Simulated assay, not measured.
Amino acid sequence: MGSVEKPWQYNFPPFFTIQPNIDTRKKQLEAWCRLVLDIQKQKKSHSLDVNEAQSSIFSNKEINRKLPLDGIYMVLDELCKKGHLEWKDPKTRKECLIMWRTPEEWGKLIYKYISDRSMTNTVCTLFELSNGDDTEGEEFHQLDDWLLIRALKTLEVDGKAELMGTDGVKFF
């Protein structure tokens, strides 16, 4: 899991058992959610396989503990409630899309970039936004197309952008 800072509870065995006390469980789920988002962000990955995560993110070999599958689903359901997760197939719940930033948050970040560079009232291609030389170093550089489009749709709802077909966007 690289250099992601794990919560202090990660080396505390009860962290790997869903806690019965509601207040404690709420804090536990928050810590798990933050850890999942931080790891996905570090990996720049928007896809999560539940079986793989069970033996990586939700496992601590140092203390020989794993979060049980029902606990993993509690964490993932919490991420879903907060708008950070969507199931690829809600029936099987085996793989999901993880958004360490919600589409709205990505949209605000992109719009700030456009505004800061006085690029309102201009047209950009989606490729230019996500892979162009000018966006290198920006957090949304190399953002997956599906998430970029969702982010731009949030700007469209706010009247700040208009998608033009499948490969362009005009900013207002």
Rank of each mutant, 00 (worst) to 15 (best):
L163M: 11
R25P: 00
K170Y: 04
K112T: 09
K153C: 09
L48A: 06
V123A: 05
D116I: 08
L37W: 00
E104H: 03
E52R: 01
I149N: 04
L126R: 09
E162F: 12
K66S: 08
R101E: 03
W32Q: 02
M1T: 05
Q42K: 09
D77T: 07
L76V: 08
C96V: 03
P14R: 06
T135G: 05
C96T: 05
N11R: 00
W87C: 13
P13S: 01
E86P: 03
S130F: 03
T92W: 14
H46Q: 14
Q9W: 14
R25L: 09
F172V: 00
R25K: 14
I72D: 06
K170F: 07
W87H: 11
K108F: 01
M119R: 07
A161T: 11
R93E: 12
W100C: 01
Y10L: 04
R65E: 12
L79H: 05
V36A: 04
T92G: 10
G2I: 00
R150G: 12
V36Y: 08
V123I: 08
A151D: 06
I98N: 08
C96H: 07
E138C: 10
K170E: 11
Q9S: 15
S118Q: 13
G137S: 12
L29S: 10
D167K: 08
P68V: 09
L148F: 12
V157R: 15
D77S: 07
I149H: 06
I57S: 06
A151T: 10
D116G: 14
L129T: 00
V36E: 02
P7C: 15
L109F: 03
K66Y: 08
L69E: 03
G159I: 14
T17G: 07
T17D: 12
T24K: 13
L67S: 05
C96F: 11
D77V: 06
S118F: 07
N51P: 02
K88S: 15
I39G: 01
I98R: 11
D49A: 02
N21P: 08
T154S: 15
T166C: 12
D23P: 01
K43E: 15
C124T: 07
L163T: 04
R25Q: 14
E78K: 13
K81R: 15
Q28I: 05
M1W: 00
L48H: 01
F15I: 10
D167R: 12
W146Q: 14
A53F: 02
G168F: 00
R117L: 12
Q54A: 05
A151N: 07
W8E: 15
W32L: 08
L148T: 11
R25V: 02
D70P: 01
N121C: 07
R117Y: 10
E78T: 10
T24Y: 07
M119C: 13
D38W: 00
I57R: 02
K170V: 03
L148R: 11
S56H: 13
D134T: 10
L97V: 13
I63T: 04
V169G: 05
E86Y: 14
W8L: 15
K61S: 08
D38F: 00
Q54V: 03
F140W: 06
H46I: 12
K44N: 10
K108Q: 08
N11I: 03
V4M: 02
D49G: 03
E30R: 09
R25Y: 04
L67I: 07
D133N: 14
D77A: 04
